[in-house]
């Protein structure tokens, strides 16, 4: 019904944007739902010198400006599994030594429970998370049932590190206001303050 040259469309641009969106939204569920479908299947016009002929009605219509980039968001694909959470902890990695991680856990399912300590193998951390596993990093440990669409049920423990944002200059500026207040309380005059860090 139409060919790519009939519409003003630059697949390279679209592809680039889609990639950048995926990078930008990595880790979010929505990124799986952003798909590029190629030339759009609607409002298509064959260009003439001064006007277009509608491919649907065959009528001459005034020229229209087509968008250069179109991203179509489809509804979520049907789920292939369901996860039934039984227990979840928030953990803080304390140490990584000899391929073993030591962490403290706070029970999110039962916050009244005391703090626990756990040691687990580095191999339990997924390749996408391994770079995040450093002392001080925060993760979630979840235990539950993984119900597949084919009816199979698996009992799993999964570890997912928090994608914490990076410190920005605006964070530091905000903190600086607080720091000035604390310096006043601590009686730190400018003469005895030491060198700024940034």
């Amino acid at each position: 019904m139409y060919s790519p040259e009939e519409v003003r469309f630059d697949p390279g641009q679209v592809s680039e944007e889609t990639q950048s969106q995926r990078q930008g939204e990595r880790g979010k569920d929505t990124d799986r739902n952003v798909l590029w479908l190629g030339p759009p299947p609607f409002t298509l016009h064959k260009r003439t010198e001064s006007s277009s002929i509608s491919l649907v009605t065959g009528q001459r219509e005034p020229d229209m400006e087509l968008p250069n980039r179109i991203v179509v968001r489809l509804p979520f694909p049907p789920p292939t599994h369901r996860f039934k959470l039984l227990q979840q902890w928030e953990g803080e990695l304390i140490e990584i030594k000899n391929e073993e991680c030591t962490a403290i856990l706070r029970d999110m399912s039962h916050p009244e429970n005391p703090i626990e300590e756990i040691t687990f193998s580095v191999a339990e951390i997924s390749s996408s998370d391994i770079s995040l596993a450093v002392p001080g990093s925060i993760f979630y440990l979840s235990i539950g049932y993984y119900d597949r669409i084919d009816g199979q049920r698996l009992r799993t423990a999964s570890i997912r590190f928090r994608r914490l944002p990076a410190w920005t200059m605006s964070d530091f500026k905000r903190a600086e206001e607080e720091a000035e207040k604390i310096k006043g309380i601590f009686g730190l005059t400018k003469e005895i303050r030491s060198v700024e860090r940034y």
């Binding site: 039984l86 227990q87 073993e100 403290i104 029970d107 429970n113 005391p114 703090i115 626990e116 300590e117 756990i118 040691t119 687990f120 193998s121 339990e124 440990l141 235990i143 049932y145 009992r155 799993t156 423990a157």
Partner: peptide, 23 residues
């Protein structure tokens, strides 16, 4: 801490050691 037996079993499989630190 007494927990659901499924949770306990999975935790034992996942962790090399596990204990309550603040009693």
């Amino acid at each position: 801490i007494k927990r659901d037996s499924s949770v306990e079993k999975t935790l034992k499989e996942f962790a090399k050691s596990h204990r309550v630190v603040t009693g």
